[in-house]
Amino acid sequence: MRNLLLLIAKYGSTITLLFLEVICFYIIINYNQSQKEIWGHSAGLFSGYVNNQVQDASDYFKLQSLNDSLLVENSKLLSTIINYRVNSKENGFRIFETQDSSLLKYTFAPARIINKTINLRNNHITINKGIKDSVTVGMGVVSKNGIVGIVKNVSENYAVVMTILHHQSKISAAIKNNDFHGTLVWPGEDTRIMNLMTLPRHAEITRGDTILTSGYSTIFPYGIEIGTIKDFKIEGGEDSFSIDVELFNDLAKMTHVYLVKNIGQVEQEVLEIDNE
């Protein structure tokens, strides 16, 4: 109580000022036409601004779930496109329905990268999907701009992906439009450059040609664009090109990937192993 009295004694005039000014401004704003209009306008601007900021903030917190739902949607679209492409290549242009399960050869599921290496000789990434989400060893991993790698290890909730930037990585890739195919490996220097080998020397190629997955494997479907031809040469005495391919994908700044499941993978592999 004593402190309160001291406070009033010390700041009494300021308190009186504020009190009286509040009354005055209340009167001004309510009983003067022009001030009332200006006040209404300014208050509208201010509350509009505040509402906008609040909306932005709450949008920000919704981004996570929005992202996830977009990823699921993307993977569905990706599945439609890839299956359509694969079917049209195999069967000509036929009406294709995703509901027709016999024509559904690949399924896609989104995943988030939670750890990655990029500057080693053998690079891996870890994703937040595991056995629970029916991830299995040998599934392909693609991103919106190309291929990423192959699932190598799976735990309950996570999976480790061997990226294409790995010395064991061998991807079957083809030149768009003429179907000559070779093996894509990573020579190990630049993370944006890979090397396409074993492409026969009579293949017609030019700089800038697009390289895509050939579909001659059980992992990646046909037609995912990987990169463009940056440079090519024939080593003396070799019968195949050595081609530098500039990737569309930049693994360094990737955050989301899609897991590709080839539904006929096991059947095909068993058949091929029996054959050997």
């Binding site: 009286l20 001004i28 003067n32």
Partner: peptide
């Protein structure tokens, strides 16, 4: 300040500008 407030309100009555002079004078 209270005297100024009252004075201001009286002035405002004649200028028909409720509160403007009062706020200023306070």
């Amino acid at each position: 300040m209270v005297l100024a407030f009252i004075m201001g309100l009286i002035v405002d009555m004649f200028y028909d500008s409720p509160g403007v002079h009062a706020a200023t004078l306070v």
